[in-house]
Amino acid sequence: MYKKLLLVVLSVITLQAAKAQTEKGNQQLGATFGISVTNSNTRSVDLDNNISDNSKGKLTSYSISPSYSYFIADKLDIGASVGYQSSNQKYDPFYSSQVQQQSKSFSATIFLRKYFLFDNKIGIRTGPYVGYQQQKQRYVYTSNESSNYDSDSYSGGVNMDLVYYPSKHIGLAAALANLSYQHQKFTGNSLGNANTFSLNFVNSFILSAYYAFGK
Results as ranks from 00 to 15, higher is better:
24 K>G: 02
26 N>P: 07
29 L>R: 01
29 L>H: 00
29 L>E: 02
30 G>K: 04
30 G>P: 03
32 T>H: 00
33 F>T: 04
33 F>Y: 12
34 G>V: 00
37 V>I: 14
38 T>R: 15
39 N>V: 06
39 N>R: 09
40 S>Q: 13
40 S>V: 11
40 S>D: 13
40 S>Y: 09
41 N>T: 06
42 T>W: 06
42 T>K: 07
43 R>K: 13
44 S>P: 05
45 V>W: 12
45 V>C: 08
46 D>K: 03
46 D>Y: 04
47 L>K: 11
47 L>Q: 11
48 D>W: 10
49 N>T: 13
49 N>K: 07
50 N>V: 07
51 I>K: 13
53 D>G: 13
53 D>S: 15
53 D>C: 10
54 N>L: 02
55 S>F: 04
56 K>N: 10
56 K>M: 02
59 L>H: 08
61 S>I: 02
63 S>Y: 01
63 S>P: 01
65 S>Q: 15
65 S>E: 15
67 S>N: 15
67 S>P: 14
67 S>Q: 15
70 Y>H: 08
70 Y>N: 01
71 F>G: 00
72 I>Y: 05
73 A>D: 07
73 A>T: 07
74 D>M: 04
74 D>A: 01
74 D>G: 05
75 K>E: 09
76 L>A: 03
80 A>N: 06
81 S>Y: 05
81 S>T: 08
82 V>S: 05
82 V>A: 12
83 G>N: 03
83 G>M: 01
84 Y>H: 11
85 Q>E: 13
86 S>L: 12
86 S>A: 12
86 S>N: 14
88 N>W: 10
88 N>A: 12
90 K>L: 13
90 K>M: 08
90 K>S: 15
91 Y>M: 06
92 D>Q: 15
93 P>N: 11
96 S>I: 01
96 S>G: 02
98 Q>R: 14
98 Q>N: 12
100 Q>G: 09
103 S>C: 05
103 S>M: 08
106 F>E: 10
106 F>Y: 14
106 F>D: 10
107 S>G: 06
107 S>M: 04
107 S>A: 08
108 A>H: 02
109 T>I: 04
110 I>W: 03
110 I>F: 07
111 F>E: 06
112 L>H: 03
112 L>N: 03
115 Y>D: 01
119 D>G: 14
119 D>H: 15
120 N>W: 07
121 K>L: 15
121 K>D: 07
122 I>Q: 08
124 I>T: 05
